[in-house]
Structure formats: C-alpha cells, structure tokens
Amino acid sequence: MIKLPKMESIKARVHRVLDGKFKSIIMSRTLMGKDYTSLLIDDGAGTPALT
C-alpha cells in the first residue's frame, strides 16, 4: 500500500525499493480503464557519468 497525501491508501504493484523523498506523482487512466502511476523520487544520488 502507498499512502498519498489527501487521498486514501491505494494498492500498488511496486517492483523497486522506494528510498528517498517523493517529488511528484502522476496518475493516469487509459480509455480501457487501466490505472497507471509514475513516481519521481529524489534518492540523493548524483547523475551517473556517461561512459
């Protein structure tokens, strides 16, 4: 379960560890009724160097 401010808890299938501060959350619904959520989390790590 993920707790969002000003909303009820929602069930979520999370496939990564959520470590850090939430910056933004985008929730959308397709025309077929499927819900998707995109999370932007600041984990404090810098940008990886290009090789």
Rank of each mutant, 00 (worst) to 15 (best):
A49K: 13
S28N: 11
Y36T: 13
L39S: 02
T47P: 05
D19M: 05
V17A: 14
G46R: 08
I25E: 01
P5W: 01
M1G: 13
K23E: 14
T30M: 04
D19E: 14
K11Y: 07
V14Q: 08
S24I: 00
Y36F: 15
E8T: 11
G20H: 09
K3A: 14
V17E: 08
T47A: 08
H15R: 12
G44K: 03
K21V: 09
H15Y: 09
L18Q: 05
I26L: 08
T51E: 11
R13S: 07
I41P: 00
G20K: 10
P5R: 08
L4W: 05
K6T: 06
T47E: 14
L50W: 05
L4F: 13
M27V: 12
S28D: 14
L50F: 12
T30P: 03
S28Q: 14
K21S: 05
T37E: 01
F22G: 06
G33T: 13
D42F: 05
D35Y: 12
D43K: 09
M1Y: 11
T37M: 15
S24P: 06
I25C: 15
I26D: 11
G20W: 08
K6W: 08
Y36C: 00
T37C: 12
R16T: 08
A12Q: 10
L39I: 15
F22K: 01
L18K: 07
P5Q: 05
I26M: 01
T47I: 13
K23V: 12
P5M: 04
S38V: 14
A49Q: 11
I25V: 15
D42G: 00
G46V: 02
G33M: 12
L40T: 15
K34H: 14
R29N: 05
T51A: 09
D19F: 06
S9M: 09
